[in-house]
Each structure stands twice: as C-alpha cells, then as structure tokens.
Computed example of a mutant assay.
Amino acid sequence: MEAILARDDTNNSVTRVLKFEPGTDTSPLGVLKHEFWEEVFIFEGSLADQRLNRTFKAGDWAVRPPGMEHGPWISEHGAKLYEVRYYQKRE
C-alpha cells in the first residue's frame, strides 16, 4: 500500500508513505536499481534487505544514490516507511 503525499510532475519527485504487510516478500521482483535518489525512513516495523544482508528497523534512515542495487526485501512483521524520490541534475 502506498499513499502519495506530494508529486512534482515537472521533475518526477515523489514523497510517499509505503506500507509492507506482515509476511511481505518482494523476491519475485529481484534486485532493484533506479536513476533517482531515494531516501527512506522506517517509522514502524522492519525490513530485511536480501541483497545487502541487512535488516533495517524503526528509526533507521537509508539513502540510495542512483544506480545502487538494493532489495529484494522480506518483512516478517510488516513495516511503514516515509520515502522521498528525487532526481539531481548531472553537470
């Protein structure tokens, strides 16, 4: 489930709240990689990043630069995240 809080169609920036239900497993989607910056704050629950072999818990903050491989995730008990996606002009 996602709730879009703000979207700027002129530069494709998005701010949203994302909810993973208990038992979520995104393994079928494989590893993700994208061309935008992504900042994520987990404010409830936890997510295990299978690629990084690391579990992120409530209170953790992650910053992913463009091109960084991450995921898939497993969330045994569910999680809620605040996420910001934005592009940065390359010079």
Rank of each mutant, 00 (worst) to 15 (best):
V31G: 07
G30M: 05
P72E: 09
T55H: 02
V63Q: 08
L81R: 00
V31I: 15
S27E: 12
E76S: 09
H34D: 12
K89P: 02
S13T: 13
L52N: 04
R51E: 11
G59A: 10
S75H: 03
F43L: 05
L29I: 02
K80A: 08
V17K: 12
E39Y: 04
D49A: 05
D60F: 06
G45K: 00
P66Q: 08
H77K: 15
A62P: 00
E39W: 02
K19A: 10
A48L: 06
R16M: 14
M68K: 10
K89C: 03
S46F: 05
Q50E: 11
A48W: 05
S27M: 03
Q88L: 11
G78I: 09
W61M: 09
P22S: 06
E69K: 13
T55G: 06
S75A: 13
M68P: 00
P28E: 08
E38Y: 02
L47I: 14
P65Q: 11
K57G: 02
A62K: 08
T15V: 13
A62W: 04
K80T: 09
L81K: 02
Y86L: 10
V14M: 10
E83Y: 01
Y82N: 05
I74Q: 11
M68L: 14
K33R: 14
L18N: 09
F36I: 04
E44A: 12
E69F: 04
H70V: 12
G30C: 04
F43D: 09
G30P: 01
E44Q: 15
G23D: 09
R54F: 11
H77E: 14
K57V: 11
A79P: 00
E35C: 00
T15K: 03
R85W: 13
K80N: 11
W61P: 02
H34R: 11
R90C: 01
F43K: 10
A48Y: 12
H70Y: 15
Y86P: 00
G71V: 09
F56K: 00
Q50F: 00
S13E: 11
L32R: 14
V40A: 09
W73Q: 04
T26M: 04
Q88F: 06
F36C: 09
L81G: 00
E39R: 06
G23L: 11
T26K: 05
E69M: 11
W61F: 14
E39K: 05
P72Y: 09
E76A: 14
F20D: 01
L47S: 03
S13A: 15
R64S: 12
S46I: 02
P28C: 09
H77M: 07
L32A: 12
W61L: 12
V63C: 08
W37E: 14
A58L: 04
A58C: 03
A62I: 15
I42H: 01
V63Y: 10
E44L: 08
P22A: 10
W73R: 01
K89M: 06
L47M: 12
E39P: 03
E39S: 05
T55W: 06
A79G: 03
E44I: 04
